[in-house]
Design a protein around this nucleic acid. Structure first.
Length: 281
DNA sequence: AAAGGAATCAACCGCCGTGCG
DNA sequence: CCGCACGGCGGTTGATTCCTT
């Protein structure tokens, strides 16, 4: 049996929602839930299509929506996640409790993108290969002068810092200073060894920079990577400050044959020493 | 105070993946 | 397996508000 035709557009209202419509939608969802968006407006007595009802609820009427300006911490998180995920607004929103994809998208296009452009303009994009070479040394522990053991993170000069860290510091240095201790665990990334046990490895900025060296869309790369790995570790961490790179790192241990060659080439773009790093995995 | 441009953001559009029949 | 409805998503629009001159 074929389903009923898609929403009848005749007579359906468009444009801004009135307070009365909002109240009808809120009351209905509170009482009956929203199992079927298409049927909802008819049952609730609204002259709207299901999509419009869903959008209104998701982006505006939900009780857990956080209104108001984005905090510095939230903006910083958006920068980091956008660097890693691209325009996957729903994925970014999932890591920002109370914020919607639409809201984040708007903030990005109205505020943050401009800041990013300005930041990129100011940051020198020089000596990339040398930079990753040094970073690889850090991972191998052969260049302790560039690695703060106590802080478990590399020491970078302003000229070497990534776009992510530049943006972050541009937004706020106080926040970082106040939260360094709390965030230390988030900056420490893990990888799986041959037994599947997690062990400590490079820090967050290291992996961010590895992946941002490639001009291609990071999210596509990540998707490809996840698709070829059966490692159950491949999960997006729940904390908004933790990127997906450790998961990518972890699933290297399951990659063989042609796939291994692909990723070998991919990492080669970031510097010859990274070949050794991948070989370790 | 008025006009015009810029910024903001709610809402729509169209596409895509998924699941049902 | 195919076609369709549906939910979800990202891109875009346009009305409104804010700012500058």
């Amino acid at each position: 049996m074929v389903r009923a035709p898609c929403c009848e557009k005749m007579g359906l209202k468009k444009g801004p929602w009135t307070p009365e419509e909002d109240q009808i939608l809120i009351s209905y969802i509170q009482r009956y839930g929203h199992a079927n968006w298409r049927a909802l407006p008819t049952q609730a007595g609204l002259l709207r299509c299901g999509k419009s009802c869903r959008l209104r609820w998701i982006n505006y009427l939900r009780p857990d929506i956080k209104r108001g300006n984005f905090s510095t911490e939230e903006e910083e998180t958006i920068f980091k996640l956008h660097e890693m995920l691209g325009n996957r607004w729903s994925a970014i929103a999932a890591r920002l409790p109370g914020r919607t994809d639409n809201e984040i998208k708007n903030v990005w296009h109205t505020h943050l993108k401009k800041r990013l452009t300005q930041s990129n303009h100011n940051v020198a994009q020089q000596n990339t290969k040398r930079h990753y070479h040094e970073r690889a040394e850090v991972v191998h522990g052969t260049n302790s002068s560039k690695y703060d053991i106590m802080e478990n993170r590399p020491i970078t000069s302003p000229q070497q810092s990534s776009s992510i860290s530049d943006i972050s510091s541009a937004i706020s240095t106080d926040h970082d200073n106040n939260n360094n201790n709390n965030n230390n665990n988030n900056h420490t990334f893990m990888k799986a060894d041959s037994s599947g046990k997690l062990s400590e490895t490079a820090d967050e900025s290291f992996w961010s920079e590895v992946f941002t060296t490639d001009e291609s869309n990071y999210s596509e790369v990540l998707d490809d990577f996840s698709a070829i790995s059966s490692n159950p570790i491949v999960q997006f961490p729940s904390s908004p400050l933790v990127s997906s790179e450790p998961a990518v790192h972890a699933c290297c241990s399951n990659i063989h044959g042609d796939d291994m060659d692909f990723w070998h080439d991919f990492f080669t773009k970031a510097g010859d020493d990274l070949q050794e790093l991948l070989a370790e995995l």
